[in-house]
Write a protein that binds this DNA or RNA. Structure first.
Lengths: 150, 150
DNA sequence: TCAATTGGTTTCATCATGAAACCACTCAAA
DNA sequence: TTTGAGTGGTTTCATGATGAAACCAATTGA
């Protein structure tokens, strides 16, 4: 799948990308979050080669991001649904979504909004905040080795 | 660089991945956020082939994520520094970091924490919240076409 | 029972990647 | 001011990943 692997590297970003870092995986997860479940649905939505889709689905299942289930409509086919681990990628997708909206769209292009279903109002943009609630930018943070558990 | 392109597709996630979706780009941005600036620094940190690094740096500069500057130490070399657009990827990296921490580390493995520099305290995890502040999960949201500007 | 649909796998050409060699420019010291 | 090391690349080439198409087995509907 890839030539270099980051397995064993200490950086959590690198480890995430090791699993999710190829181009299609996140798009499959996005589609799964939109409710797609069937092989054919993914293939049609993404327009990707079936052999590659097959590879990626296996990869995502192997890593516990999707799981295979019997079809919900009673047919004998199977479906691919997100696990808890997969659903936890939601903030990653939202962050990518917000960045793309801000930096990859022209002035008057049609856009979508993400709404809170309960109220029907737009969600707040993702923000990094300090323990006391202050809004943080890159330059306000640093990384430190965590003291070992005891 | 890639065989398929998502240019012109309406999904902002797809557009983001079209720019940032290859494996190395986000790692370069991560390193840039950690303060790396020089070709050699990136190459040493990432252990990647120099020709590929060269390609990626050009790509990131072309997309306005990095910019080339004269070296800050007065030498004749140049440096690659994040633009505003590049720094805006911070939430994406933080989201990937949190997911990786949660799902790609073993029990007792040494970890890092992200601290708010001002207070020296760990930052809050990224959260998606409704307009009224309620914590939202995937299933609490939906996408809708934005009404056109007027 | 037959034809269409679904969910793949196989095959093969092509593109991207990565390792190594090579090269030009800069810098510091002799 | 030459020289040698270091920096920042580019070129070349072998190899691996990708994608299109053909193929195939199982399921489903008519």
């Amino acid at each position: 799948m890839r030539r270099t692997s980051m397995e064993g590297v200490a950086c959590p970003v690198a480890r995430s990308l090791d699993v999710m870092g190829d181009w299609w995986s996140l798009l499959i997860v996005r589609d799964a979050m939109l409710g797609l479940r069937r092989f054919g649905e993914f293939q049609k939505s993404l327009g990707m080669a079936k052999n590659i889709l097959s590879q990626r689905l296996k990869h995502l299942v192997a890593h516990g991001i999707l799981e295979v289930q019997p079809a919900s409509d009673g047919s004998a086919w199977q479906e691919y649904v997100l696990t808890q681990k997969g659903r936890r990628l939601f903030p990653v997708l939202v962050a990518l979504r917000e960045w793309g909206m801000e930096h990859c769209f022209e002035e008057g292009e049609p856009r979508t909004v993400m709404l809170d279903t309960a109220q029907g109002l737009p969600v707040k943009p993702l923000e990094l905040r300090a323990a006391d609630g202050r809004l943080l930018e890159l330059q306000d943070t640093r990384l430190e080795q965590e003291p070992p558990e005891r």
